[in-house]
Simulated assay, not measured.
Amino acid sequence: MKNEWEQILLTHAKIVFKYLIKIGATKEDAEDITQETIMKTIECLQQIQPEKIRAWMFKVAIHCYYSLYNKNKTIVQLKEVDLEKLMPAIEDVGFSLLTKEMASELDEALQELQPMFQQLLILKYYMGFSYKEISEILSMKETNVKTYLHRARNTLKKIWEVKFNGE
């Protein structure tokens, strides 16, 4: 049983680490946050329902990341390749291929979103999580996730149109 838990923790820790890198944590910060997340998970293992362990780990990691973010005021910067995965969020803006210039503009538009909207778009479009998984990670109702994601997409689209299409 111990080996099974270790494997589960490591599997989820790898996903958490990848997510942290994608939202802008440095490799060192992502490693530290992931390690802290594993330690807190081990400490609270008796209290966590097995099917909710990944969501719990994400909550801890996100909390740690934002604590660090608030201390350092670091801005989230996504890579061009990562931005391509977010294109479905604004696909109806009128283009299908992401050029380097568009990637830069999309990143700029993302920076104007509130952190919750950024987080929702990344969890949905980059990490590929379901609405249910996102609701567990963020401790909110699935219907609220859908509503906020809709708002995040619309806000991103409006920012895009105003900044780059001159509308």
Rank of each mutant, 00 (worst) to 15 (best):
K22T: 05
L138W: 00
L123T: 05
A61I: 09
Q47P: 01
C64V: 07
H150D: 11
A103P: 00
Q49C: 12
M1F: 08
V60S: 07
Y126G: 05
G166A: 04
K85F: 08
K100Q: 13
K146N: 05
L138N: 08
Q77M: 07
R54F: 07
A30L: 12
E4S: 04
M39A: 15
K18I: 14
A89I: 00
I48R: 10
K40I: 13
K59L: 03
M39K: 13
E161K: 12
M1N: 11
K85E: 11
G166E: 14
Q35K: 06
L121I: 04
E31M: 12
K146C: 07
M140Y: 00
I23S: 03
T41F: 07
L10H: 11
K158F: 05
C44M: 05
K22W: 03
N70S: 10
I48Y: 10
E6K: 14
F17W: 05
R153K: 15
Y148H: 11
H12W: 13
K22S: 06
Q47L: 05
M39Q: 14
Y19D: 10
L121Q: 00
S130Y: 07
K124P: 08
K158P: 04
K146W: 01
F117Y: 15
W160N: 08
E101K: 13
R151E: 14
L9W: 06
E28H: 01
G128I: 10
R151W: 10
M87R: 14
T147Q: 14
G128L: 09
E105S: 06
E43C: 01
V93A: 15
K52R: 07
Q114F: 02
M116V: 14
K146M: 10
V162A: 03
M116Y: 07
E108M: 10
K18G: 08
T11D: 14
E142G: 00
I33T: 09
L113K: 06
L78A: 10
Q118W: 02
A13T: 08
F129T: 01
Y125D: 09
H150S: 11
G166W: 12
C44H: 06
E136P: 08
L149G: 09
V16L: 09
Q119A: 11
E133R: 00
K100D: 15
V81M: 13
K157A: 10
M87S: 11
A61L: 09
H150P: 04
E28A: 07
V76P: 03
E43H: 06
